[in-house]
Design a binder for these strands. Structure first.
Lengths: 145, 145
DNA sequence: TATTGTTATACTCTATAACTATA
DNA sequence: TATAGTTATAGAGTATAACAATA
């Protein structure tokens, strides 16, 4: 089977690698804690950036506003996050973890620590760090608002 | 904005990078030629592996059989591929490009040659090759049937 | 006018269950 | 009984248009 033509494309290799990271995520975190990948990212971001606006979240995670709205609605229904109007600008919704949300993030973070081990063990420590660094440079230019 | 916790995960960096490769693909190939990423991969694979079975395609592209069926049905409707029963095993469907499909793959391949340039230019030639090689090792173990 | 967020909707990729037909 | 492929359906991520509320 010749797929040498495809292997020259970063997009193809990204799609292939995602098969493995998705499996790792659902086995270790997504399944046990009933979290989607995006929900996990969002909760971790809220843990480290208390009271961030939806606008900031959308920019950081490259989400369109409608998709963030439905994502937050689902997490709000589960009692993991809550939204409150900003005092200084009533258009802005500031998002925070609830105590239950903070507790779940804690468990998710612990479970995630080893989730990619089966992939990471294919590399030396230096190679793994290099892969993450090189890959980061392929991402959108300005995710840090 | 602190997203240092997320940057330690390969899955997160993959998702971020895919934003860029998706944009590159749709600008250069997907939009002009009306091809989805998966359709492009499939057509390129058919060009280099004439008469491959659906089973082989599904394994190589990590597709579930139902998803491959609908994908091929769409391309068949457009007159780009055709399926024929194998002589030796009538369960097997051998898939080939039609002349029109071959012509489209030709154009798609030309358009794709430069599609990731805006990303590739962020790296030296050695770094780009290294990124593709490291990333390949993160993918599924046995894609070559 | 511009920005923040919502509603409704659609497209793409991925996944499972249940089935037909061939071996 | 095992394999190749199909049908139907659902979950997850991503995209746009049209809109309300606020600045």
């Amino acid at each position: 089977m010749d797929h040498s033509a495809l292997q020259r494309f970063l997009g193809y290799e990204l799609a292939r690698a995602r098969v493995e990271t998705n499996r790792a995520f659902f086995d270790s975190v997504g399944g046990p804690l009933q979290l989607r990948p995006l929900e996990f990212s969002l909760l971790l971001l809220l843990r480290d950036n208390e009271g961030i606006s939806q606008h900031g979240l959308a920019l950081t995670l490259n989400l369109r506003p409608p998709n963030l709205t439905t994502l937050l609605a689902r997490l709000t229904c589960r009692g993991l996050v809550h939204r409150e109007c900003s005092d200084v600008d009533r258009r802005v919704q500031r998002v925070r973890l609830t105590p239950g949300g903070a507790e779940l993030v804690n468990r998710a973070s612990k479970a995630a620590a080893s989730m990619e081990d089966s992939i990471r063990h294919r590399y030396s420590a230096a190679e793994w760090a290099l892969l993450l660094e090189l890959l980061h440079r392929a991402g959108p230019a300005n995710p840090d608002i």
